[in-house]
Design a protein around this nucleic acid. Structure first.
Length: 571
DNA sequence: GCCGTTTTCGGCCCGACTGTTTTCAGTCG
């Protein structure tokens, strides 16, 4: 079992215990352990050697023993006993909006409801409304929730949520009462996928803002409407909620609504230790008086912390680092000096090498690598060795046209074939300025085989960068089952950089992997994989992913000057 | 079930909205 599978087991245990009516703090303990395991950098088995599982935050003696049992037998007696008592399928019911553990427990005990089908029947036959604390409206809400669940596509990729949020912002900014409006939640933290869009506005009077919000075009349903908070669902199923606060309270509100929930818990604990109480409204002193924060920065200052960038707010040690003054100097978009994975009309790109290079130069970059596909990727019009050589002539011509102040590098994105060999001979690769290697096929090979292919590419003396290492596509395709630790170690040893692909449907490496890679001494490259100049605009998604991985600019090879970069490529 | 700048026992983050309630419970973020 891997980290995620163990975490899922504990999450399930937490849900079942909560439905059963176990004391909430036991439930929270399992949930915290699950979160910890999910966020763990590196493999859980490493803790067996160094100090044991109780070194993991939120894991004590009891849970450590359960991890041990899961790792050695793949099963857990405690869990098997629990699901004989509380039907496992009850956790599906928690996915229904407005339905939580208390009511699920109630329906199960009173009506024998154990799955979504039972629930639907009970609601349609009017049985739910007869229960204590239930009524007609609650019953109707559950039916609506069931419909919404059937329609809803899990989490929304950043690729869709980001532009949608920008559109909403553009429509609400002109509302006269709106002083400030910003994105909060997981979108502000730039997570790869978003649950719903959270928006924060500052206004003296919220009524006008709320009205404009619930009356946005394409709103299909108003889910709730209040003076401080409203939420809506759009026709395409996307959901958004808006909080409105007076300007003098905007700082605490934005901090609160940005999350993550776990980050906020850490902050409130810190506040408590100082005798303060932190909420979305204000910081309250022991004598009951309020400190108002118009700026988010002030919230952190009062708690004795530097401002923590939203991308770090995942409770992955950022509060502790802030207390010690050890926050990283994160990569910013302006640090990027060029793109090291781009395509032209020679393969599946939409624009010529000249057009791509001019667009890159006009963005103020110092260099661009043209890295068209190699021949075995037929669908993308991969280049034969002869075509690659004639492409070199065109690169030279473009370079002459642009002059010496901007450098065009002749690279290639060479296919790592199913047998682990590369698509070009070493002599051909040796002629290139830059070799990017990547997997596009055989992603579902068994762990050992696909890992070995990747390691083979890393060991090739001509390979400089591994592009989109896991091959994941958000939200449809999981990455290959790679031994990432082995890959990071090999990449560090052989001086091969790993890419953070900025395409918001990829974001690969992800944040957790990027952080671990840097810890192990691996260099990174943040590339757009552009097939036309507009794709350069996607780079900020890659930068955000790097920031979420605590990545500092000096670890990213395309923040370097062209001379330093060429030196690295040569080695 | 976990954990320690109040503590090895007794705590464990805060508030809005909704619906069913005469004062609160459940859910969500």
């Amino acid at each position: 079992m891997n980290n995620r599978e163990i975490a899922d087991t504990f999450e399930k245990i937490a849900d079942l215990l909560e439905i059963k009516g176990e004391v909430i703090y036991k439930v929270l303990a399992y949930r915290r352990a699950a979160d910890s395991l999910r966020e763990l950098v590196g493999d859980v088995t490493e803790y067996q050697e160094r100090g044991g599982f109780t070194e993991i935050p939120g894991v004590g003696k009891a849970i450590a023993e359960k991890i041990e049992e899961l790792l050695s037998t793949g099963k857990l007696g405690f869990y098997e006993k629990l699901i004989r008592e509380v039907p496992e399928t009850l956790t599906d019911l928690l996915q229904v909006p407005d339905l939580g553990p208390k009511k699920v427990g109630l329906f199960w005990r009173e009506l024998g409801v154990v799955n979504l089908k039972d629930l639907e029947e009970a609601a349609k036959s009017g049985k739910l409304r007869t229960l204590a604390g239930m009524g007609e409206k609650s019953e109707a809400k559950i039916l609506a929730g069931l419909e919404s669940l059937a329609r809803r596509t899990e989490r929304i990729p950043l690729a869709l949520a980001w532009p949608a949020a920008q559109e909403i912002l553009a429509k609400l900014k002109p509302v006269p009462a709106v002083k400030i409006i910003e994105v909060g939640g997981s979108l502000r933290r730039m997570r790869a996928t978003i649950g719903d869009i959270d928006l924060l506005a500052a206004a003296e009077d919220s009524k006008e803002v709320m009205r404009a919000f619930v009356e946005l075009p394409d709103v299909s349903r108003v889910l709730s409407r209040g003076e401080t908070k409203s939420s809506v669902e759009f026709k395409d199923g996307l959901r958004a909620q808006l909080w409105v606060y007076p300007p003098q309270r905007f700082g605490t509100a934005l901090q609160y609504a940005t999350g993550s929930k776990e980050h906020n818990v850490r902050l409130r604990e810190l506040a408590q230790k100082q005798g303060l109480s932190l909420s979305d409204q204000a910081i309250v002193k022991p004598d009951g008086s309020e400190i108002l924060c118009a700026e988010e920065r002030e919230v952190y200052e009062i708690l004795g912390l530097p401002w923590i960038p939203p991308e770090l707010r995942e409770d992955r040690g950022e509060v502790q680092a802030a207390r010690k003054g050890n926050l990283p100097e994160l990569l910013i978009l302006d640090d990027i000096k060029g793109d090291l994975q781009t395509h032209s009309t020679w393969s599946d790109g939409k624009k010529s090498i000249l057009e791509m290079a001019e667009a890159a130069r006009d963005r103020g970059w110092e260099y661009l690598a043209v890295t068209d596909h190699s021949h075995s990727l037929g669908v993308a019009g991969g280049l034969s060795e002869e075509e690659l050589r004639s492409q070199h002539e065109e690169i030279k011509a473009v370079q002459e046209k642009l002059g010496r102040s901007f450098r065009v590098l002749h690279g290639v994105e060479v296919e790592i074939r199913a047998d682990g060999s590369l698509d070009y001979d070493d002599e051909v690769l040796a002629e290139m300025d830059l070799v990017v290697a990547s997997l596009h096929s055989g992603l579902r090979q068994p762990r050992q085989r696909v890992t070995e292919r990747m390691l083979n590419a890393i060991r090739n003396p001509h390979v400089d960068i591994i592009a989109h290492p896991t091959g994941r596509l958000i939200p449809d395709r999981e990455g290959a089952d790679l031994d990432m630790e082995a890959i990071f170690k090999a990449a560090a040893e052989h001086g091969v950089a790993l890419e953070i692909n900025a395409d918001p449907y990829r974001l690969d490496l992800d944040d957790v992997h990027a952080r671990r890679a840097v810890e192990l001494g691996v260099m990174l490259a943040v590339n757009s994989d552009a097939h036309s100049p507009e794709w350069f605009d996607l780079l900020h998604f890659g930068v955000a992913t790097a920031r979420r991985g605590w990545v500092e600019p000096q670890k990213v090879i395309n923040t370097w000057t062209v001379d330093r970069l060429l030196d690295f490529l040569k080695k």
